[in-house]
Design a protein around this nucleic acid. Sequence first.
DNA 1: AGTCTATGCTGGTATATACAATCAATGCAA
DNA 2: TTGCATTGATTGTATATACCAGCATAGACT
Lengths: 258, 258
Amino acid sequence: MHKTEATPEMKTPTRISQIPLSRQIKDFILEGISSGDLSPGDRIPSEAELAKHFSASRMTVNRAVSELTVEGRLSRVQGLGTFVAEFKPLAPLFEVRSIAQEVVEQGKTHSSVLLEAECEPATKQEAGRLEVETGTEIFKLQVLHLSDGRPIQIEVRLVVPKFAPLFLEQDFTTITPSDYLQKNVLFSEVEHKVDAVSAGEEIGQLLEIEKNAPCLRLVRRTWIGNEIITYVQLIHPGEAFRFTGRFTGPQNVKAMPC
Amino acid sequence: MHKTEATPEMKTPTRISQIPLSRQIKDFILEGISSGDLSPGDRIPSEAELAKHFSASRMTVNRAVSELTVEGRLSRVQGLGTFVAEFKPLAPLFEVRSIAQEVVEQGKTHSSVLLEAECEPATKQEAGRLEVETGTEIFKLQVLHLSDGRPIQIEVRLVVPKFAPLFLEQDFTTITPSDYLQKNVLFSEVEHKVDAVSAGEEIGQLLEIEKNAPCLRLVRRTWIGNEIITYVQLIHPGEAFRFTGRFTGPQNVKAMPC
DNA sequence: AGTCTATGCTGGTATATACAATCAATGCAA
DNA sequence: TTGCATTGATTGTATATACCAGCATAGACT
């Protein structure tokens, strides 16, 4: 038999609901955040208030709120209160902003110049990059991207026609090749390589930098299944550009740095 | 005046140590794991046993152990016990090979030279990078990585001690800082920045390249929840090194090209 | 007006307790 | 031997309480 003595006046909860009270409190707060009722920086009710509202003990509220804090949704300051955290990661697992986005987010205007857009047989090197037969007809594209009129990126792209037959018909001054592909072609795998190179004569001229200035070169290949869709080299003036990727594992994240 | 009635027999802890008991319990368990006393799958003492060992209440132990469970270090089964969680080496979503891996895969031998390894108060700049208070004690590390004896990477790393208390005690000539963190610290979010810079005097000397040679700089910050674990700058001789990331999105792929 | 102090919020941590839920092992019965 | 119920260990959740520490403000003092 269990010893059943309720020492002071301890409320024995009837436990109507199956889901834990602390869980309900967490959900309540999360819903406030995602519905927009609570914006980042807003203060949420104090533990005491929440406890009253839910007829819960302060400890239970504390647990719920503490967990949300660990999870990064809230931010607490002793003596002051609890606030909705600025940060709301979620959604994209790995995001690389397109050049246009990046530029626009900095409050500048993006424009581009089409240097080359053709359909030609692949050279041996190009065929190797796309893993197709030499001589296969492929799309070749060269675009210079500008930020407020200043050269910021050279995009050299190869595309296998069968995955984006209408590719060359786009107006690449209004939509970047990346944005077009992103919106119109499914992919299953991406590989990046990043290295730093000297600009060299031709690129230096296009980017309006010294010919031995450091450049950041990002090479990306994109697959659907085991076939390559597109190969692209993005070359930036090194010190002027920054490539940023952000990776969020909502939970059960297993691995790390390098 | 405060009402000071200790209703039943409630122990008023003398609070010898400044650091919270629950924190001490967490550290105790974490140390057991990283020291190898506890291997994945092993059962750790029950809440009751730990409570007795630490002269703590079961609730305090429960809190410590629950937090470690949320953080993915432990796994609990009601009615059975608490176990050290399996540590799966790599998340398939986004992989960044460590420098040692990369070198070994090229059939070369990796070695490293420890340039600096200290625990010091954070400067203002360092504090900003880790988002901690200026003057907080942090681990600072500088390692030069070599491939077949040739300099290939400079690693400048800052680590918040509480996430990897034993970090500085590692032998970084046999395990890279990255590999150590990868195996011993969970994270929830990663941010990368890549840019190209000129080597400059000091770095040029270490990497044995011209002082205006292009270098690839990768800056990475790693979070658990909303706290930064580590900040690292990896600087490579541009043309000699390549940073490769591979991303596979079987579904839920939100963003990409660029 | 300016400065200090007391007070009352707020969260941070810890304790003691209670009971529910789950699981493995045990033991009894068919 | 098989099947089922009991039991004990263990975690899951919740309550009530206590005291500490940080912050802001009102009011007292200079």
